[in-house]
């Protein structure tokens, strides 16, 4: 299995497409950082409007921690799409270039291949998150320094003390890892039904976008279903930036995501095991 995983990772990281994602992450993060360097004061003024009417907020509000949060807020919607780029390609891509049949004439079990593909996609997603952590957190802190962090929620203004922030980012990245695992599992599941990778990639993106709309739109009809949608729980990382941290809700979200992940992977194995390889 380890040998097979190494081969999978070798394939993923020898493909130019893989690095596009890393490039996109770096580009978006840099754009936000540069924009904040140039015009951050105005942005903060605008964002704090609701509070600054009544309170006088002074000090290094625009610090690396806040900017990291802004980058994550923007990027963590897009990272699933980048994860889909690799996970959606995992089986369908092999089918489309014709290597799937060659792979399966090797003494590998199909469930084994699915698990290896899943693991490799997860490793890729984790590396993407680590890269994001380096670029978003590392670079922002380097450029803007650290400080107390302000988190604007719709109904609350949260301030976290400087020494109480970093662990939250590590926890948030770990949670994002669970969310990305779920995305990878979904993309892999769609990948098993297709013989080219465009379908599963677009499919995953579509599902995530539509369900995110369901999750965020505050309509009664969506309220009823949104607790059951995995997209509702994907933003659980934000819970770590609340005070106090809603551990119960976060644990619940993590469990929902894990259950979805297991469900997706198990379905992939069952479907792939029964599939006639005609590509």
């Amino acid at each position: 299995m380890i040998a097979l995983l190494r081969i999978e990772l070798y394939k993923i990281f020898h493909r130019p497409r893989t690095y596009i994602s890393f490039g996109i992450v770096a580009a978006i993060a840099l754009v936000i950082q540069l924009a904040m360097l140039a015009d951050g004061k105005n942005f903060i003024g605008f964002a704090l409007q609701g509070v600054s009417e009544q309170f006088d907020i002074k000090g290094n509000v625009l610090n690396g921690y806040l900017i990291t949060y802004l980058i994550l807020q923007t990027l963590l919607i897009h990272i699933p799409l980048l994860v889909a780029l690799v996970a959606g390609d995992a089986l369908a891509g092999e089918a489309s270039i014709g290597t799937l049949r060659l792979l399966l004439t090797k003494p590998i079990t199909r469930p084994g291949l699915v698990l290896v593909k899943f693991t490799a996609s997860v490793v890729y997603a984790m590396l993407l998150l680590i890269w994001l952590a380096i670029i978003a957190l590392g670079l922002s802190v380097l450029l803007f320094g650290t400080g107390d962090m302000i988190n604007l929620k719709s109904d609350a203004f949260v301030m976290l003390l400087k020494d109480d922030v970093l662990w939250r980012y590590f926890a948030a990245f770990a949670f994002a890892g669970i969310a990305m695992m779920c995305v990878a599992a979904l993309a892999l599941l769609l990948s098993v039904f297709a013989d080219n990778s465009i379908g599963p990639i677009i499919g995953t993106m579509g599902i995530i976008i539509v369900l995110t709309i369901f999750s965020t739109l505050q309509l009664p009809i969506f309220d009823a279903i949104s607790p059951y949608l995995f997209t509702t729980h994907m933003i659980g990382w934000k819970g770590f930036f609340d005070a106090p941290v809603p551990y119960d809700a976060i644990t619940h979200s993590a469990i929902v995501l894990l259950v979805y992940t297991i469900l997706f992977v198990a379905t992939t194995i069952i479907v792939f095991n029964k599939k006639d390889i005609q590509s």
Partner: peptide
């Protein structure tokens, strides 16, 4: 005395989990 504070949820994309208490 305070004025009300509210940001539209669409802007902040809040996570409330399923914690009714919150």
């Amino acid at each position: 005395n305070l004025k009300d504070y509210k940001l539209p949820k669409g802007v902040t994309m809040d996570y409330t989990g399923t914690d009714e208490d919150l």
